[in-house]
Simulated assay, not measured.
Amino acid sequence: MSTEMVAKRLVTLCREGKYEEAQQELYAKDAISLEPQEMADGPLGNVKGLKAILEKGHQFMESVEQIHKNEVSDPVVADGWFSVAMHIDATMKGRGRTDMREICVYHVKNDRIVQEQFFYDVH
């Protein structure tokens, strides 16, 4: 599967809210997930391995009461890399409604995502 095919499949699944399915299907077992420096050591910070990435996703979803909007841009692909812009408008437990926007950059090797890195402003 080419980087472009991986990117399009990820976008399709994320637009449907199937984040865990995307990770199970497209990620390498030893993939890494990187957050902005200010968040790297937090409970949803940097992790290594698909199991840890899945757990990070579960923790995030447990903090969500309701998702009002989930938007994912078309991917921009260059060699083994691609990026998408994501926008989630959600009501978070104990925090109220939150508008989250980020740039997500992915690295693909051997038909699998080996790295994801998120760029967003920490408020």
Rank of each mutant, 00 (worst) to 15 (best):
E65D: 14
A52C: 08
Y19R: 05
L50V: 06
E55A: 13
F60G: 03
E20V: 13
V6G: 02
V76S: 15
K56C: 06
E35G: 02
R15L: 08
S33E: 14
T12G: 08
N70C: 05
A7C: 10
L50D: 13
V47K: 01
E35W: 07
Y27P: 05
E55R: 02
D41T: 13
P43R: 10
E62S: 10
V47M: 04
V77N: 13
E16N: 11
E16H: 13
G42A: 14
L26A: 01
R9S: 06
H68R: 01
V76H: 14
P75C: 07
P43S: 14
A52T: 09
E38I: 04
Q66W: 01
K69R: 07
V6D: 08
V11M: 05
L50T: 03
G57E: 07
P43M: 12
E62N: 12
V64R: 00
A78F: 07
A52Y: 04
V72D: 02
E35F: 02
V64T: 09
D79T: 11
P75W: 09
N46C: 11
A22C: 11
P36S: 03
Q24S: 12
M61I: 05
L50C: 10
E55W: 01
P36R: 01
Y27T: 03
I53Q: 00
E21W: 04
G57T: 06
A78P: 02
S73P: 06
R15H: 08
V72F: 07
A52W: 05
D30E: 15
F60K: 00
R15T: 04
I32P: 00
H58D: 13
C14T: 07
C14D: 15
A31T: 09
E20H: 07
T12M: 11
E35D: 12
C14P: 00
A31Q: 05
I53T: 00
E71K: 11
K29A: 15
E65F: 02
S63I: 03
E62D: 14
E21C: 03
K29R: 07
Q37H: 09
S63F: 01
K8V: 03
K51I: 11
V76I: 14
Q66Y: 01
G57F: 05
Q37I: 05
Q23R: 11
Q66M: 04
P36T: 03
M61L: 12
D79H: 10
A40S: 14
E38Y: 04
Q23N: 09
R9E: 14
E62F: 03
A52F: 08
R9F: 01
S73M: 08
H58L: 04
